[in-house]
Design a protein around this nucleic acid. Sequence first.
DNA 1: GTCCGTTTTAAGCAAATTTTCAGATTCCAT
DNA 2: ATGGAATCTGAAAATTTGCTTAAAACGGAC
Lengths: 230, 230
Amino acid sequence: MNIKSVQGIRLLLVDDEPTILQFLELGLVSEGFEVKTAHDGISAITAAREFEPHVAILDVMMPGMDGFEVCRTLKKAGYPVSVIMLTAKDEVDDRVKGLKLGADDYMSKPFSFDELLARIHARLRNQFPQLLEEAVHGPFKLDDRRREISYQDRVLELSPTEYELLTYMVHNHGIVLSKALILDKVWGYDFAGEENIVEVYIRSLREKLQDREHRLIRTVRGAGYRVDLP
Amino acid sequence: MNIKSVQGIRLLLVDDEPTILQFLELGLVSEGFEVKTAHDGISAITAAREFEPHVAILDVMMPGMDGFEVCRTLKKAGYPVSVIMLTAKDEVDDRVKGLKLGADDYMSKPFSFDELLARIHARLRNQFPQLLEEAVHGPFKLDDRRREISYQDRVLELSPTEYELLTYMVHNHGIVLSKALILDKVWGYDFAGEENIVEVYIRSLREKLQDREHRLIRTVRGAGYRVDLP
DNA sequence: GTCCGTTTTAAGCAAATTTTCAGATTCCAT
DNA sequence: ATGGAATCTGAAAATTTGCTTAAAACGGAC
């Protein structure tokens, strides 16, 4: 997603399950967020005090102080923090239901990483609209909400992967991006195929941008690709 | 949200569960509302007399005088108050009962704070339009007091779920909404079924809107749906 | 109970997208 | 200029996604 626009945004992750914590942290950091983690409620509160996160992602079920308590404490202290609560699907007793009220959004496990990203963006749009402006880079206009990219004021018709790829590259224009890096960011670290697929998609983008001379998306032989804005 | 200012708007919160009461009060006060709370039906009536709330948020299940009774009493006394009823998901018949007894809207737990905010705003739009902007989006007119949606000045005949879905989507027009998000917001966080049901309902809406070309409700492949107003 | 509208599930189909592959082309170092 | 590696290309194969339809499940009204 849009690396640059997310810089300086602080996320607090709280979960007592180390595996999940690590997994989420890894993903969110590589998206460009500033991330702090805590494995229980008490340390979450402490961390929040000095870290001042924009968004807190809290697991409901934790030993000791649970997610609800953390949420309430943060809100009460007046931090302008958005809270996304994570809970398992089978935790549906009434007490839990009622307490869900304090959070700004709520996701039930299991969920996809992409979905979490979308929720974080939604929260940011709501709470800190000035942080996520519509990005204009030269002839490109990136509209994350509509999920559209315009080039010279014409909306491009892109497949999902093309959209992700172009978003990533335009946000990082002027920088050479290796195929390995692109694979990581766009296809995910666990993609098993060959790097040739990047070439295939670059070709498709060039076609849709009418970039016959490869001047917009430049090939840097042996290093990767670079978007050059006029 | 499409609200100009919330200052001077008075909300009455009634619930016997102190935790929930506190959560809601905290959140709503920080949104700028004037909030008064009551923990049972009797004191709710008393509070309403001198506080004269614009909107009352009542829990259905309370010992002694329940939410319905409070609602009926308030309406009978002629206060110009909008009532939002809170009920647990399995108390299905409560909804119908509540609407018959004069409630203007209902919400089933669990819900997020955002949803409650949206409902309050919706209520205010209808009951006190001078305080807020109109709920007209292009060719759509949303009247959730009557639970009706007009499209090009014709009232649509919608099932309850269709109504919720279209309301949600029109309210968020111009933004891509994933099927997962729609499921959460419209069907509730604990819905167990497949995302296909969203597709089925979208189809039904398109049919009723005569949107054969899918230009009103656009499919954004791999991402979700987006309402585009002409 | 039966009827009726609504919600939900399921399966087949069509289309779009992703991925792979093999041959062509380009580039660079020698 | 030549060989080898990197990149480009076009098209087929594989996969995924969304659309549609019909039937089953459900709930309330009678």
